[in-house]
Computed example of a mutant assay.
Amino acid sequence: MQPKRYSGYKSFSYLKPGEDYKEFRLSPELQRVDSSPVAVTSEQEERVKRIFQEQLIISLHDHCFIAPEDLSEFMEFRRWGRDFTGYEGLSISGLDAVFDNLMNGTAMITSRGGWKWTDIIHDLGIRLSDIDHQDMVVLCRTTEDIVNAKKNGQIAFIVSLEGAAMIENELDRIDILYGLGVRCLGIAYSEGNQLGGGLKEPRDGGLTTFGRQAVRRMNRLGMAIDVSHSGDQTSLDTIEVSDKPVFITHAGARQLWNSNRLKPDDVIRACAEKGGVIGIEAAPHTTISVRNPRHSIESFMEHFEYCVNLVGIDHVAFGPDVLFGDHVGLHTALSDALSIGASRGHLEYEKVPFVDGLENPAEAFPNIVRWLVTHGYSDDDIAKAVGGNVMRVLKEVWYR
């Protein structure tokens, strides 16, 4: 892929490890495991390169940080409040923009439960402080920032939060988050909150009165709304109440795999009918299927094609939800904290050590585009799926 203007900067290199913060050994950013690239001919690879040069490449959902190598240290690592961005990996990812969701559910500086207002602000401020000390990744506030990032060999960093529990019952906190750079906010992250129901709740009562007020506030501010981790009824209510299109930033089709973590057809259709977009998810053991029970790029793309057939190419994109490090091990370490088992419904599946072809943000979109090229998709359709559809929604949803 066309490399970005990377200077070699490493996170927090303006500070002294061991003096300013506790040092942890981090996972390798690249070639941590033997993940397989999608096979293409030399002619097809030239086409792939041209697509990356000419089209906007936008990830609708990722976590571009580097996990510690020893995941038994993860909670202590997070309590120090410093996520190290994988700048080297991002420099070869081909991305022009990424909806980065920090690690908001594990911002546990003051609480083991996470999602506290002070912790979220701490998480956001420290991450943006590090980003401000280099010039390849830039904070994104407008669609023009995305266009300029591509033009300048940079990556637009779109701050996103997966759930709104931290606003509690204070509507103006959405304005504060917007003012600090947040441009996409989820309604609920698995556990229900003041706005509505999450995926793991036994009953989803839908969007609350306060949740309806929050949706209207986000519309007026120009903040994108995400229902990926919201319950089905809360998702449908949010899409109905919103004046603007809504994102399902990272999910798949429940029709292919009966997991609460994936969306049923009626929610995907409602999202598309409102002009919204679903981003296909690749976090370990999510987008699998009866036909492809071993999670890989093949099962992931089966969910993509199902959604394209269901609602059309104009309403499907990619939100891989990957990171730099052992994602499978991280899910094991955080299973209780992030309600992973509960949100998936405790289904039986073949466990993999990593998702082949979609191991981290450096390889996800190059392999996605290669797969699309080798499966007969036109340049126009590829352009829509890898960035064009997301940009269309942002132009309608964001204030500018």
Rank of each mutant, 00 (worst) to 15 (best):
M1D: 11
I288W: 03
L310M: 10
Y6E: 07
M1W: 09
C140N: 13
E29N: 03
A337K: 15
D243Y: 03
E240H: 12
I109Y: 06
E19V: 14
I158W: 00
Q213C: 13
S235C: 02
E45K: 08
V98H: 02
E144T: 03
L180E: 13
T106N: 12
V38Y: 12
V48W: 00
Q194Y: 14
R173I: 00
A224S: 14
G94C: 14
I280Q: 03
V308A: 12
R220N: 14
K274G: 07
Q213A: 15
E168T: 15
G113S: 05
Y349W: 06
V40G: 02
A282G: 08
D266S: 08
H285M: 08
A164G: 15
S42M: 14
G222E: 08
Q233H: 09
G376R: 08
D243I: 02
W117D: 07
T208S: 15
L71T: 08
D321V: 05
V397F: 08
D20G: 11
S190Y: 10
L330T: 14
D226P: 12
R5A: 13
D336V: 08
I158F: 01
G276K: 11
F324T: 00
V277G: 06
S36F: 13
F157E: 10
S339H: 15
M218F: 02
D326A: 02
G231K: 09
M218A: 01
E363P: 10
F84S: 03
D237M: 02
G275N: 07
G186S: 00
H250L: 13
E191A: 13
I239T: 10
V33P: 07
L90K: 08
R254M: 14
E69A: 10
G312A: 03
